[in-house]
């Protein structure tokens, strides 16, 4: 009796799920991007106009650049902040390590809108910081709210747990005895970090960067609520195409561009990772 290979039976539901929830919508978006919208109607007139518009109209390039720079700034700030935190937990957390990492996830117990509303209450014109400054007799800081800076602060707050977790997971598998060896061989703490700790944990850092950079690139809610009139992001503009303006075809082309940009970032980060040197054991080739 011919039987289904067990692997196929096991993988079948997963493959079906990915097909229905990821591949098909992506294929639809890709197809729509070559169509045309007119007065809220989608016409299957195959053309490249949407891509031409995205390349020729400076507005969309500005949105992409604004989002890219915002994502880069957020990733760098998260990286600088996350490394010492993750290092401290991994090295000195002892039996509280898991608890400390779980605490990082505490903000996720509430929704993103609530977290942004809380930030508004802290950073806003009548928020906690400016109120305190007023009581102390100082002028309020206008840049705290409705600016690109405010959007970046929001992104850092929202995404930092991803970066810390990724770096921490890399560090818990790191053999800290190697630092002793480096020390015995004459390396100072900085040199040991640059030549041993950093490269051997680069894979965790790279994953952290990807986990922060890509959602930031597509982010729409944070800049919408915190960013002000000069912080319209690529994600915000993209969302508008599928809502208010009903320009689905252009929105789809923007979606494809965003997807390709994310893939490029992923590929770029992938190229920087040396699996053998990083101590990664998931490929089974060592």
């Amino acid at each position: 009796m011919k039987r289904f290979p067990p692997l196929l039976l096991l993988a079948g539901p997963g493959i079906l799920f990915i097909l229905v929830t990821l591949i098909l919508p992506l294929a639809a978006i890709f197809m729509f991007s070559f169509w045309r919208t007119e007065s809220y109607e989608l016409y299957a007139d195959w053309n490249l106009d949407n891509y031409r518009t995205l390349m020729r109209e400076p507005a969309y390039l500005v949105f992409l650049l604004r989002s890219g720079l915002g994502a880069l700034a957020t990733s760098l700030i998260c990286l600088i902040y996350a490394w010492p935190v993750a290092y401290f937990i991994a090295r000195h957390g002892g039996r509280y390590r898991l608890l400390l990492v779980l605490l990082l996830a505490a903000p996720f117990f509430t929704g993103v809108i609530l977290r942004i509303a809380a930030l508004q209450g802290i950073l806003g014109p009548g928020g906690l910081i400016n109120m305190a400054l007023g009581i102390l007799g100082f002028q309020p800081i206008a840049a705290l709210m409705y600016t690109q800076t405010a959007a970046t602060i929001g992104h850092v707050y929202l995404f930092i747990p991803f970066m810390v977790t990724a770096i921490y997971l890399s560090l818990v598998n790191f053999n800290f005895d190697l630092l002793e060896t480096a020390k015995v061989n004459g390396a100072g703490p900085l040199r040991a970090f640059i030549e041993v700790t950093w490269p051997l944990n680069w894979i965790g850092t790279a994953i952290g960067i990807v986990l922060v950079f890509i959602p930031c690139l597509a982010s729409a809610v944070t800049p919408r609520f915190l960013g002000g009139p000069r912080a319209t992001s690529f994600g915000m503009s993209l969302g508008q195409q599928f809502g208010e303006t009903g320009t689905w075809a252009l929105g789809s082309a923007m979606g494809v561009v965003l997807f390709l940009a994310s893939l490029a970032v992923l590929a770029l980060m992938g190229l920087t990772v040396n699996l053998k040197r990083s101590g990664f054991t998931g490929m089974g080739t060592r």
Binding site: T37, Y40, E57, A59, Y60, F63, T232, Q241, T245
Partner: peptide, 18 residues
């Protein structure tokens, strides 16, 4: 009312926002 050309209006709004 419905904008005479949502596409044209979208372009204008994007230019303003950028």
């Amino acid at each position: 009312d419905q904008p005479s050309s949502p596409e044209k209006w979208e372009r204008i709004w994007s230019d303003v926002e950028a």
